[in-house]
Design a binder for these strands. Sequence first.
DNA 1: CACTATACGGAACTGGCGTTCCGTTTGTCA
DNA 2: TGACAAACGGAACGCCAGTTCCGTATAGTG
Lengths: 208, 208
Amino acid sequence: MSTASGADTATATSTASSEGVTSVRRMRADAVKNRRRILDAAEAVFADEGLSAPIDVVAERAGVGVGTLYRHFPTKEALFEAIVTTRLQELVDSADAASTADDPGEALFSFLRTFGSQASAKHDVIDALAVAGVDVKSRCASTFEDLQAAIRRLLDRATASGAVRDDVTTAEVIGLVVGACHAAEQPSLGVTPDRMIEVVCDGLRRRV
Amino acid sequence: MSTASGADTATATSTASSEGVTSVRRMRADAVKNRRRILDAAEAVFADEGLSAPIDVVAERAGVGVGTLYRHFPTKEALFEAIVTTRLQELVDSADAASTADDPGEALFSFLRTFGSQASAKHDVIDALAVAGVDVKSRCASTFEDLQAAIRRLLDRATASGAVRDDVTTAEVIGLVVGACHAAEQPSLGVTPDRMIEVVCDGLRRRV
DNA sequence: CACTATACGGAACTGGCGTTCCGTTTGTCA
DNA sequence: TGACAAACGGAACGCCAGTTCCGTATAGTG
């Protein structure tokens, strides 16, 4: 829900002076308000139109001119970063939450199901992870690595417990789930992610 | 390999006269040659750059001006149609070939593996099937339906034999495999389709 | 209240790409 | 070989989306 993540609140701009002293200046009230509006608009627009939605749409939805938008985010990618990082963080949180479950296998699977429903609700994550041309890697790198690490933890535990096969990598698990979600976004196929994810989970289970 | 599919040879243009008689006129020799060159170039370019490759690139590779390209294919989509239909047909053929195998389960799985390797070699199929915005549906509709039907046949047989679970649709199988291939095209993930497809196959197997 | 740094808006610019247009070239046929 | 329809090439056009620019508005301060 919340898009702010502490340091992201951005009510201030920091400037390094020549002596190395850091002076902080409050943002003007309207600027703060507009920044919020832009983030909210972007979150909504990207969620249901995907990352390819034109910037103008975001600006209009925020009730702001494009110029203003660019004052806050120098690039469309910078805006992606803000939004996608949030989403990825939500997924990291889900993964961490799932990791406390008793059954390590179910912990992984329930996370993957969560991932699926999150992703099908918010087009942007999948776009960020699955569409070539949007390079998450460069901008949201660290959060993406966090996510990968969190999934690896789930996977390792599940593998160690014997619930899940041990010949699959974290990246492959991500690929399978993201792939399924991406396919589900294609209206012509007429499928939803859930059953496909169930198949993936079964495929991950260790054969008895 | 071969891109020609009988009626596609297109060395002639048919015209309906006022009396309803159909007169056929030979294409000029250079036109025939150029059409071939364009198709070959498009096949190569789309295969390794995907369907988003600019038309100019195709034209240049074919050693032809854009005007000439447009004389042969009135639209970029028309060119897609020519290429993608061929690829889809290849897949239909693979599916039909697989369907003669003794073990119905393995018939399906070996086709899915073939699909995976075809797809990872030729970016365009996956683009056509997985990237929103390219509507295969409208142009290659019938061939796509043929493919879907062929896969359904494999799936039904596999299900009937008890080798494969019976709660999965053809579209879901396609979604899973296409999704995995699509994910594999993302260089940042660093995965190949094969193991992911193996997981999908295991997921499709009926639990014993 | 006046003054200025800060922020705003949106028209204009840019680059990429699909498509069109038209003057030139060339294969074909008598 | 001459004539002409057919085909060619590539410059030019239009659209779309990201980005920049700059004249105008306003929050914050003394």
